[in-house]
Design a protein around this nucleic acid. Structure first.
Lengths: 237, 237
DNA sequence: AAATCTATATTTGTAGGACATAACACACAT
DNA sequence: ATGTGTGTTATGTCCTACAAATATAGATTT
């Protein structure tokens, strides 16, 4: 576990040590629970100050790759794949283009998980969805309270039983809330899509019939009408 | 910019300061390029040691939320949404379940972007894809060289022109490589799917015909056969 | 007055010392 | 065998110090 100090000029020592520690974990295939050397030992081995090691460890700790137990030592952990997203998926930190990209990504995933949903969904799920929809409060012809939006779609995500999908989509959902609040009079209705506007309750029959193609088309139209409206009316920022 | 030190016992000072600085940026809607106070000032304001501030800043720097210019000061930056993923999306750091979740996520996205692809694709794109496919080298009845796999699918991703989608899928692709190499004799063929196995060249006609439903079904079968095989044969680990 | 040089202050990156606190290990006494 | 006490270790935090590069202001020169 040695490396050539200042081998790459543009990187700081912290950057290099971070990389070295990570590659030390990966190369040695250290699994969750494995202890790693103390800060002092690491600093000695890398021939750097302890605070350099601490900064590098601090980053890995944030990523969830290591966990430090106070006064005991550090161990390797399995990182939460999506968790680190949440800090940067923030409408105030991202550009308009990034937000639009994420909204389109959501449309793609949410229609792309159709097979998973139709395959996994139970009658209990459908009953729960009907219960959620029945509580819906339309503030407008089309605009739901954001809590209702989140509750409904989040329920759909959980049917996939895929935690990566659930986490990723639930992370993007707040962006929708942000956009929604930015535009009080949001009405995703225009000449083109007036006929095929889909509300939450319209999705239920497709779920009941386990109609893959029908549901996919419906959820796509449901989301696309919204995202097209956002783009065309430039309601972000 | 003050906060109650040790307000939450379980969090370290670094955790709290990191949160405070991030919320300082978000609340004040600091946009890319805005300068933020020096480490010394921050440490003074938060009433903590400078290294605590440095550790917190080091994390935000890694996320791309701030950038520090040596000897000059720090500025706010727009973080790269997907970049931070790459460090943790590593087969040696993730559990088998997480890998499977990501492979399923890939199937969902890659079939979910069908509309984007068919809508955006140009004749030049199709020619390029045909060129890529013509270079394909089958090492086996079904197994391609990983470079070919990556080149083909990566080209599809770029047609979406959505950087979030491109980055996310290109991050998951190496996991496929890992799984592929884990199993030398990979043959995603069994009784059930023998008839509907889709190779890369089989996708091209659907692209040419701008056939949304046909392409979606084909890419889904192409990927699903593989991912089902991975699951059923437990070839990870 | 304008341009140029110079000294000083600022800021990040890095090193290293110090201490509190908690957990652990081990010897020792009961 | 159990309990006690002591010393060691590890992380978390604070502090000082300095190098190097940059910006700034002031002095000097033209």
């Amino acid at each position: 576990m040695e490396f050539n100090k200042v081998a790459i000029k543009s990187l700081t020592l912290v950057d290099q040590v971070e990389e070295q520690i990570l590659s030390y974990i990966v190369k040695n295939k250290l699994t969750s629970g494995t202890e790693i050397p103390s800060e002092f030992i690491l600093a000695e081995n890398f021939n750097v100050g302890r605070n350099v090691v601490r900064e590098a460890l601090s980053r890995l700790r944030m990523l969830g790759i290591i966990e430090s137990r106070k006064h005991k030592g550090m161990v390797v952990r399995e990182p939460d794949v999506m968790k680190n997203f949440s800090k940067v998926v923030n409408p105030y930190l991202l550009s308009k283009q990034s937000l639009l990209n994420l909204l389109d990504l959501r449309v793609s995933i949410e229609s792309g998980i159709t097979e998973l949903i139709i395959h996994n969904i139970t009658d209990e799920d459908i009953m729960e969805i009907e219960s959620i929809v029945s509580k819906h409060i339309y503030q407008d012809e089309m605009k739901l309270k954001v809590e209702n939006e989140i509750e409904f779609h989040s329920k759909l995500y959980h049917i996939t039983k895929n935690q990566a999908i659930i986490d990723l989509l639930e992370m993007i959902l707040p962006l929708f809330v942000y956009v929604n609040e930015k535009h009080e009079n949001f009405k995703p209705i225009n000449e083109k899509n007036k006929g095929k506007l889909i509300k939450h309750e319209d999705l239920i029959p497709f779920l009941k019939n386990r109609d893959v193609d029908g549901y996919r088309q419906a959820i796509y139209n449901h989301l696309k009408a919204y995202s097209e409206y956002v783009k065309q009316n430039r309601i972000i920022y």
